[in-house]
Computed example of a mutant assay.
Amino acid sequence: MSFARVRALVIVGVLAVVALVFVVMALVKDTQGSAGLGEGCPDDWPRADVTLRDHKDVKINVYNATERRGLAANVGDDFRNRDFQVQKEANQKKQIDDVAVLRYGPKGVGSAHLLRAYFLGDAELEYDPKREDDIVDVVLGSNFQQLATITEVNQSLGDLGAPVAPPGSCPMPVDG
């Protein structure tokens, strides 16, 4: 074996050992191993369910906060056709100018995140830490046009990232 080949093997070997040392050090000194699991949160803070739910597991109420008649029923049917569990459809007296407002509690964080994608991220979020159900209220405003297509929803979910626990709450520990 030539000297150049031996030298190359020695350099590659040293680089492999150095890379292995860096990997082991990164794993040993990792301080984010329990990040997002609610450790260190005050006991009185609610635990937010940040699990991104499947459509069939999301319960919603649809409210019309516009002057358009039948909007809640039409959008409720659209959500039903997409396998959501529509609990109630009604009108709201106070009109809003937004596209939509999503009202939810700690158990509805992941569901509200999914629903936000149906409005391409333009829905306002109203988190209520005292709310105890897992239902998300979808309040349609005067700037609402239509729900996003499945492709647009998937792209919007990618843009929005993972659900995050709202301020004043802690994410629930993940089982498994």
Rank of each mutant, 00 (worst) to 15 (best):
M1Q: 04
S2G: 15
F3Q: 12
F3H: 12
R5C: 08
V6E: 09
A8Y: 12
G13W: 08
V14F: 15
L15H: 04
V17C: 07
V24S: 08
M25G: 05
A26I: 02
V28L: 14
V28T: 10
K29N: 10
D30I: 09
D30S: 12
G33V: 12
A35N: 04
G36S: 03
L37N: 09
L37V: 01
G38E: 07
G40V: 03
G40L: 02
D44Y: 10
D44I: 02
R53H: 06
N61Q: 10
A65T: 04
E67M: 06
R69W: 01
R69F: 02
A73E: 12
G76V: 05
N81V: 03
R82T: 07
F84W: 08
Q85E: 15
V86D: 10
K88D: 14
E89F: 03
K93W: 09
Q95E: 14
D98K: 15
V99K: 08
A100E: 08
A100S: 11
V101H: 00
R103S: 14
G105N: 03
K107H: 12
G110W: 03
L115Y: 07
R116F: 01
A117Y: 09
A123W: 11
E126C: 06
E126H: 12
R131D: 13
D137L: 02
V139Q: 11
V139F: 11
G141K: 10
Q146I: 02
I150F: 10
T151P: 00
S156N: 02
G158A: 08
D159T: 11
L160M: 13
G161A: 08
G161M: 05
A165G: 03
A165Y: 01
P166N: 07
G168L: 01
S169W: 02
M172N: 03
V174E: 14
